[in-house]
Design a protein around this nucleic acid. Structure first.
Ligand SMILES: [Mn+2]
Ligand SMILES: [Mn+2]
Ligand SMILES: [Zn+2]
Ligand SMILES: [Zn+2]
Lengths: 142, 142
DNA sequence: CAACAAATTGGAATGGTTCTAAGGTGCAAG
DNA sequence: CTTGCACCTTAGAACCATTCCAATTTGTTG
């Protein structure tokens, strides 16, 4: 099982690996992210999760999302100072931020691109991660 | 005079071009950014500017920085949800965020790299800007 | 100078996120 | 079992960078 697969079942495993418990809140939040693979804010996740867990609190949504990020099941994405977006796509990808619609699109990276981009770093720079963000206009699907 | 040069004198010109006034606040703030070419926050700029303009307000610092960004004399840079950083380097460059020290380093881009990265976009995506962010550890200058 | 627009100012408001303190939950040792 | 204890969730307060607002100041134009 590679680190790139995302299934609801992967969750219990990853949590256990980190010595954390599987809870209804964590499961439902992860399910919600996998079901509609867009880039919701914590508030948006809160709204979607409420139908399943009507008494969940916003603090718990933040806590669980943070846990999922720590377990490497979800990526946190930021544009300028906007609210953090949560992305369950674990493949190496860039983000395209559509300035008209506010939508965020995943752009898969060709094999080797990150390695190549990293070669621009002068000696002495040791990058643990590289992030690529595009901003512009995306053609709407017709 | 290319768009890549940064001189105090360029400011009056750019402001005029946009129908804006040259003010002491705007001049001193721009000078402060050019003098120490790091990536200060608005608060940091506020602190540096106060010695020259003791009565300046933080709101004005925000207003002026925003004006400089609109005039393309300064770039605003964000890491996660941290305070916005202001960068007077107008050459195409990436940012390296040193996670140990919190320092931000400019990484000049080789000719053609942005064009090449942009080729990963599928048809229908029209990027107006590309941003590259590295995170990791940078060797301290010894 | 008068009129008006542009810019600055201090302080209040905003909004996403984090913190805090109080309960709840569930495995584990006895 | 059942008690202990760590983990987790919860509501609401606090935080803090930034924006907004209304009042004043500054500068330009007629
Ligand atoms: Mn947007
Ligand atoms: Mn940092
Ligand atoms: Zn994504
Ligand atoms: Zn820079």
């Amino acid at each position: 099982m590679s680190t790139l697969t995302s299934t609801p079942d992967a969750l219990a495993q990853r949590l256990a690996d980190s010595g954390l418990r599987s809870t209804p809140q964590r499961e439902v939040i992860y399910d919600v992210l996998l079901k509609k693979r867009d880039h919701p804010t914590a508030d948006e996740v809160f709204a979607r999760v409420k139908s399943e867990l009507p008494t969940i609190s916003l603090a718990t949504v933040y806590n669980c999302l943070e846990t999922l990020v720590q377990c490497n099941l979800v990526r946190a994405v930021n544009f300028e100072r906007g609210p953090t977006l949560y992305c369950p796509n674990l493949r190496p990808h860039a983000h395209f931020h559509d300035e008209q619609t506010g939508a965020t699109h995943d752009i898969d990276l060709p094999e080797g691109l990150l390695a190549q981009v990293t070669t621009i770093l002068p000696q002495g720079y040791d990058a643990k991660s590289v992030e690529i963000i595009f901003r512009g206009k995306a053609q709407s699907a017709r």
